[in-house]
Design a protein around this nucleic acid. Structure first.
Lengths: 198, 198
DNA sequence: TGGATTCGATTGACACTGTCAAGCGCACTG
DNA sequence: CAGTGCGCTTGACAGTGTCAATCGAATCCA
């Protein structure tokens, strides 16, 4: 956790600032001043401003993949809810990373091969889970639709909790977990799945 | 549609720019130059930069409420899916507004009474719908959880489609509508509701 | 009619940002 | 010991939002 190089110092300071005040007001000149180095020092380790955000996003996706895999490794009897929960809990616990990861104006996934790789790895965790859940007879469309549904639910709840009007309306971690599970249950996405036409 | 006052010209130009390039690179000085007025003219009609985004968000929430109410007025036999669809379609059709509405660093809902009013009005449409759907015997917790679930699903899908990695992966409007309905169906949120505890 | 006031818009200055280009010191290497 | 790469500094530049003062033309009121 303690930064060793200047590169790391800049990253930690930026992530912390973003978690508290968002990524937009962030001034790397100010970060440099706080670190006691020249205004140009941060940019020496990255190509430009976008490069710093890209580095943050890459670190974020790596943590993200790890968090989801750990949730699946827990072998819960309701792995869907567990996975959804891990998504939201990650977003809340690492909002500094999360706020950057889905902002293409800060870090364009298509412009950085490594970012693209780690991002795809994260998405694959979710898609692979849905594929296994639905079984080998499931159509590609159903897999895609269900994976997107789970992803949308978790992503929407995360963003609404972090930046949206749900902000600060859920207090303690204890209640937060219960609320997230309730949301997952109220959607049909929590438990194994029971289709309902008409 | 055609702007009449300079105030309107600025708003239209900004919304169009945001829809194409996002809200962050936007320079109101450049907007002023394009409109053939001085660099300070835009700020004369609003308190500051945040004020312009607030005005855009207010207009957005008004359009948003209207779109959802129209969807409910259609009296579909699957009003849940219809409502979810109207949410996402609105976001895609008005991404200039949508990109601003949920960005508290650009427009803080709690800081502007009118913005707070129109935003609450939008959220009330959703909550009222869920309350009516679940009936008078539903607990407040269930209503809140289900409304949040619907909201999260629609919001997550919208943001993933607009700024996320789903961008440009869904092509035509025709396919888009079908895909949105498939996602709504794959979640349990589409049709009237059937609870499932494993 | 004429003076005051209001309001849309202009002008100039300011601090601040990211970026470009050049240069400095110092460890390491041949 | 010259040379070379690397971490970092320094200085300049264009561009941005914001503050303050000003201007001109309507509008209102005496």
């Amino acid at each position: 956790m303690a930064p060793t190089s200047l590169r790391d110092t800049v990253l930690r300071a930026a992530i912390e600032h973003i978690a508290e005040h968002g990524p937009d007001g962030l001034s790397f000149r100010q970060v440099a001043i706080d670190a006691g180095v020249s205004h140009q020092a941060p940019y020496h380790h990255f190509t430009d401003r976008k490069g710093i955000f890209t580095a943050i996003a890459i670190e974020g996706y790596e943590l993200f993949t790890k968090a989801m895999l750990e949730s699946l490794a827990r072998k819960s009897d309701d792995p869907s809810t567990e996975l959804l929960e891990s998504y939201v809990i990650f977003a809340l616990a690492h909002r500094g990373h999360f706020r950057v990861m889905f902002r293409p104006d800060l870090c364009a996934i298509s412009e950085d091969p490594e970012l693209e790789r780690v991002a795809d790895a994260s998405f694959d965790v979710l898609v692979d889970f849905v594929r296994a859940e639905l079984g080998p007879r499931a159509s590609i469309e159903d897999i895609r639709a269900r994976a997107t549904a789970m992803w949308s639910l978790a992503h929407g709840l995360s963003t609404l909790l972090i930046d949206g009007p749900l902000e600060n309306k859920i207090g303690q971690v204890r209640n937060r977990r219960a609320f997230i599970r309730a949301v997952a249950t109220q959607s049909g996405l929590g438990s194994p799945l029971k289709r309902n036409h008409s």
